[in-house]
């Protein structure tokens, strides 16, 4: 604890006079909160918090007035831990942790935890959405020398061997459960595919001539093309053209062409010779020719 205080007095530029019981504000609008693992820890991590403020964010999941942006969350703080830590400032609606600050994590289909890629266990950034906007001010005005404590008797946080044992136990999957997940996912996937196929069929129908020979041309929206052109196919066509062109060319037919080939050959030899010479010079510079 003492060491923590020492550090603080040194680093509070803003309100030096009554720094000991006040919150500390950084130039970027960030406020410092201390966090320690358990009550008998000697050192603390610093959380940097501020209200979430982004110009171009339209997401409804991070309402500007109620979201707190937190930096430097240590790896042992899971989503639930963070939720509980911050619920002292007001009811927490949702917590979102990520590796980098930035827009929402990909919003693909919701996957069961067995199919999600493994999470990185590093320091995280978090977006905490409170129910009331007042909670943000409460969090920001929290005195920085009263640290948040991660692991308490009421809320033990497992680390180390105990955590790994728990992890291992959780990694055991029941087969029928897994089968169920797979089945439901595939069912949905098949349905989606079918819908797509249906849509395509419809479009194809629309493109067909009617009795009078008219074709209805529609603009169609993005991404509806049945099979997009591939880059590789384009390349192949180009190469084919090139080959054709080359085949038609006459090589070593005229005297000047022959002379040119010879000239090229000598130039090639010279180039190689020069390259070798440089290589040798390089090696000589590094004393690579001493046999012993």
């Amino acid at each position: 604890m003492t060491s923590g205080v020492k550090v603080h007095t040194k680093m509070a530029p803003c309100k030096k006079k009554h720094a000991s019981s006040q919150s500390c504000v950084l130039p970027g609008g960030f406020t410092v909160l201390s966090l320690q693992f358990s009550s008998d820890s000697v050192s603390q991590h610093k959380l940097y918090v501020k209200e979430h403020r982004v110009r171009a964010e339209k997401s409804s999941r991070r309402p500007l007035d109620r979201t707190l942006f937190v930096l430097n969350i240590p790896p042992y703080c899971s989503q639930d831990v963070v939720r509980e830590l911050f619920s002292q400032f007001g009811t927490v609606q949702s917590v979102e942790l990520g590796d980098h600050p930035g827009s929402l994590m990909e919003s693909g289909p919701k996957l069961s935890r067995f199919f999600r890629p493994a999470e990185k266990q590093g320091f995280k950034v978090g977006y905490i959405v409170f129910q009331n906007s007042t909670s943000i001010a409460a969090a920001k005005s929290h005195p920085h020398d009263i640290p948040l404590v991660v692991c308490t008797d009421q809320r033990p946080v497992l680390t180390g061997v105990q955590k790994w044992i728990k992890q291992y136990t959780e990694s055991l999957i029941q087969v029928d459960k897994l089968q169920k997940i797979v089945d439901s996912f595939m069912e949905e996937y098949d349905k989606k595919k079918e819908e797509e196929a249906e849509q395509q069929r419809k479009e194809a129908e629309q493109q067909q001539e009617d009795e009078e020979g008219w074709v209805k041309v529609t603009r169609g929206h993005k991404g509806t093309k049945a099979r997009p052109h591939s880059e590789a196919a384009n390349q192949r066509t180009l190469q084919k053209e090139m080959r054709k062109k080359k085949r038609k060319e006459l090589m070593n037919f005229y005297t000047w062409q022959h002379r040119n080939t010879q000239k090229e050959h000598i130039a090639e030899l010279r180039k190689k010779f020069e390259e070798d010479k440089q290589r040798i010079a390089l090696l000589r510079g590094q004393r690579k020719f001493r046999p012993y």
Binding site: F37, S41, V42, S43, P74, T159, G160, V161
Partner: peptide, 14 residues
Amino acid sequence: EAILEDFQIMGKGL
């Protein structure tokens, strides 16, 4: 300081 303590915390028991 905190990092060194984290080494301890994260490898508790080990």
